[in-house]
Design a protein around this nucleic acid. Structure first.
Lengths: 339, 339
DNA sequence: CGGTCTTTTTGAATCGTTTCATCAGGGGTT
DNA sequence: AACCCCTGATGAAACGATTCAAAAAGACCG
């Protein structure tokens, strides 16, 4: 009554359900006259296909899920934007899930996605603790591509950026400018990308004999940057430059520094990571380490569909991109950093 | 073989499928001993429920869709964030669709969502052209709540902000500061929110005898703001203040003005709309018209579930919030605007 | 008019759950 | 032993589409 099904359409058009199905799925196989009669019935009755039934029969949905750490972070929306065209061209649908850097939320999403029998999964995992969950999905025939994250020994394709190198780039940039005490703001340290960026930074600092203060944050957003700076300003021996684990944190830090009357870059330089669009438009245009965001997404989608197409005889590929330093006013070097 | 179903679990546990289903859905109705045997079988076989089959049986999915104009706009992610808790508490799942201010994309999403028999829909429509499509959904028993948009004569609940008033607030703020030629940047004009903001602005300008230049843009993002400013700077009679239809446009405009050496606010004031977090952290902290973003989302979700609960005897409600002016440095009045 | 092809259409089986009327097996009472 | 109750378990009937072997309907030829 409330919903109209193929049976109703068939009755109205005086044909069998098989024929209605054919009109929808292989129109060329049904006679012109019959086809138009069926189409008329469809629009008369306002019939809409039931996707659950199709999926049940097909055994798979046509949805590709993208699980990201933070949808509010422009980095991830750009990654998704990069992946969408390819996915849609393939006739699939994109659904974006936000783990919010929370393992429990992530896991809940994974459970649901598995129940939905998604066509494939692009995911930036929160940390390593969901590895077995994720493997379970690929064990159940759901191809998985790790995004912004090397596969390591895990059996998946991956698209990543060399974050250790990114960390080095940022640190070297600050060291070259003459800074002798640097702060790193970011966290939680369990997030591999953050750990890598920090590792690269540490490496350079040690080599150059530069002091490094690490401020661990509970998340990667405005508030984290602001709070870390509050702490930092209390210190006696204050760093003259800050490397933030991403641009959101950097913008928060910048805001807090400005509020406290600390001049950027003269009294404290800042460099971020990701080079989101907002970075260039910030209070002081923000230096940053650029990642090829949409290319990450595009490549990830490509790998996913390759895996789907190749089936059994697929071998996983791991693509690594190199980040690039973008210097702007927030680390301008033509001013001597204060002693 | 590849997928394991309830039947397999039933066989392994030596019970009927009905019992397996009961274990999953009403565990209290099955004897302790049987239950644990079934659970063991489930985890042995790695059984995962098939959501398509559940949905087919249930006739509805447990997904609430949110269709927004631009996922990369923090305004919308905040709205979604506001709506999520309530939706998840209700045991439903959120899926976010991005229309990208494009009617065709929007329509494609609606078609798919209808085929998926979503539980409900929160949508910020691109313009009026999809009104009949949207009504079709509610006709097919899918409750719809319009977000950031009054329902007008359409048969839906809605949660909106008084954009005409918002436009007035912004314009009055600029007029009070002594500006005598103002620019409005935003578009396309077919988007009702934009039209409203402009209308409010026009009203105040006319009343005050202030000149208003309208720069129509093809979208509401950084690039739009930058390009409009390029045009504006070419003009002989250049406005001394700009009202941008949203903060993204405003940040683009700010960036372009700064690049051209035009001092903000001394030589050109700027005010945006939405008061996204980035506004306060901008090159020059951005004045803006604040909307209660997460409250919009929360209320929308509330209305949706009210409608679901009330069923037939539901009467649509239309909630309107009032926007609030947030004055920051980009319109600082302590400096006389130049003649 | 019978026979051979080709083009269309049919109808039943299937996908994996949920639901619900029914049935089995104990206890307990008379 | 006959009866009723109660707790648990069962199995078949949906749900709505797709698929495919088989039947029907034409078309064409001799």
């Amino acid at each position: 009554m409330t919903t109209t099904s193929m049976k109703d359409v068939a009755r109205a058009a005086g044909v069998s359900v098989g024929t209605v199905s054919n009109v929808l799925n292989r129109p060329e196989a049904v006679a012109e006259e019959t086809r138009s009669r069926v189409l008329a019935a469809i629009s008369d009755l306002g019939y809409v296909r039931n996707d659950s039934a199709r999926q049940l029969r097909a055994g798979r949905s046509r949805t590709v899920a993208v699980v990201v750490l933070d949808v509010a972070n422009p980095f991830f929306t750009d990654v998704v934007r990069g992946a969408e065209p390819l996915i849609e061209t393939a006739g699939a649908v994109v659904t974006v899930c936000d783990s919010g850097e929370d393992v429990r939320r992530e896991r809940r999403h994974l459970e649901i996605l598995e129940e939905q029998r998604v066509l494939g999964l692009l995911i930036t995992p929160v940390d390593d603790s969901s590895a077995s969950w994720i493997e379970r999905l690929s064990g159940h025939d759901i191809p998985v591509v790790l995004v912004d994250r090397g596969a390591g020994r895990h059996p998946h394709c991956s698209v990543a950026v060399d974050d250790v190198h990114g960390g080095r780039l940022a640190a070297r940039h600050l060291v070259d400018a003459g800074h002798e005490r640097i702060a790193f703001i970011g966290g939680p340290a369990s997030i591999p990308q953050i750990a890598d960026r920090l590792a690269g930074c540490q490496e350079v600092c040690e080599e150059a004999g530069v002091a490094l203060d690490v401020f661990d944050t509970p998340g990667l957003n405005f508030a984290a940057g602001r709070e870390a700076v509050e702490q930092m300003l209390g210190r006696a021996d204050r760093p003259t430059a800050v490397f933030c684990a991403n641009d959101l944190v950097a913008l928060g830090a910048l805001q807090s520094l400005t509020m406290h009357g600390v001049k950027v870059p003269q009294e404290c330089a800042i460099i971020g990571y990701d080079d989101i669009d907002f970075a260039a438009a910030a209070a002081v245009p923000l230096s940053s380490v650029r990642q090829p965001r949409s290319q990450l997404g595009r490549t990830a989608a490509q790998l996913l569909f390759d895996e789907i197409a190749e089936g059994a005889d697929h071998t996983h590929r791991n693509v690594v991109f190199q980040p690039e330093l973008i210097a702007r006013a927030s680390t301008a070097m033509d001013l001597e950093p204060p002693m």
